[in-house]
């Protein structure tokens, strides 16, 4: 526990969120009834540079809302976000354009996250095209490079994403996210819905890329056993609040909040996770 705390103190935070609030209001037309959902209530979070922070919680706990706020896809109602020490929440549109490539997301449902009308290569080219980084033959060459990097054959560039397997599609999504050379990657349930062997392969790929591209990850997942294997830090969300936050060891071996205990117990992975945690923590 002591070593983790020290490690956390040394590593600077890449992303900081302070007192984030987000409320969704739905109103039926011609009716005064309102449905109010508080997705985020005073959320504080720090994501350490070069580490894998996991955000766990049940569905509807506000994980995805937090992810899209951090990915600058949604504006929080209140609160502040810092990225690399500068404030994001009040950035103007030019600053945002400069910021966007540094923060990228990989979504869960890779079939829905890839436009079926595009070819694999076009999908990877899209972010480069939007940012105007490459054009013409250079664009295609860069796409092929990226495909190779994530373990896909560049020959498959003209095929539709629908012809790929689930794992290959996820690799494609990762390649697309890497195209803009981000520093911060949000993995929004990116490993869910894959079989265990594929999950392991993708996970290995992500860990390799983390060192080679010096990436910082935020892994959003409901799968505690997965988080137990790879996370450096864990944050637990419940009803729009972060109820527990700390190193993996802290959270898994000595959960403080009742909800964390409940989660760990329901999955029944405490022991297994703890074991891997000890192995991983020793490195």
């Amino acid at each position: 526990m002591g070593t983790e705390a020290v490690g956390r103190a040394i590593k600077p935070a890449l992303v900081k969120a302070r007192a984030l609030c987000k409320r969704y209001v739905q109103r039926a037309p011609f009716s005064r009834k309102k449905f109010v959902i508080d997705a985020l209530m005073d959320v504080d979070l720090e994501i350490a540079l070069g580490c894998l922070t996991a955000l766990v919680g049940e569905s509807g706990s506000g994980k995805s809302t937090l992810a899209s706020c951090l990915g600058i896809l949604e504006k929080p109602d209140r609160g502040e976000i810092w990225f690399e020490g500068s404030k994001v929440s009040f950035a103007n549109s030019r600053e945002l354009t400069a910021l966007r490539p540094k923060i990228q997301m990989v979504f869960q449902d890779s079939a829905g996250a890839l436009n079926p009308r595009f070819s694999a290569a076009q999908i990877i080219e899209e972010p480069l095209e939007i940012q105007g980084r490459e054009s013409g033959a250079r664009l295609r060459a860069r796409a092929c490079e990226l495909m190779e990097e994530v373990g896909l054959s560049p020959d498959a560039g003209n095929r539709s994403p629908l012809e790929f397997s689930g794992g290959q599609r996820q690799r494609l999504a990762i390649a697309r996210a890497l195209a803009l050379k981000p520093t911060f990657l949000i993995l929004d349930e990116s490993l869910s819905g894959l079989d265990l062997a594929t999950q392991a392969q993708i996970l290995n790929l992500l860990l390799d890329l983390q060192t080679s591209h010096s990436l910082t990850y935020l892994l959003i997942s409901h799968d505690l056993s997965l988080v137990g294997q790879v996370a450096d830090f864990v944050a637990v969300m419940h009803h729009g609040k972060i109820v527990e936050c700390g190193s993996r060891q802290q959270v898994f071996s000595a959960p403080q909040h009742a909800h964390t205990k409940e989660l760990l117990a329901s999955v029944g992975v405490v022991e297994a996770a703890f074991r891997t945690a000890q192995v991983g923590g020793g490195q």
Partner: peptide, 21 residues
Amino acid sequence: RKYVTASRSFGASDYYILRRH
């Protein structure tokens, strides 16, 4: 669709999203 969200995260304008997606 998620690919529209993804496109936004690359900094795509509304016009680009309408046209391409």
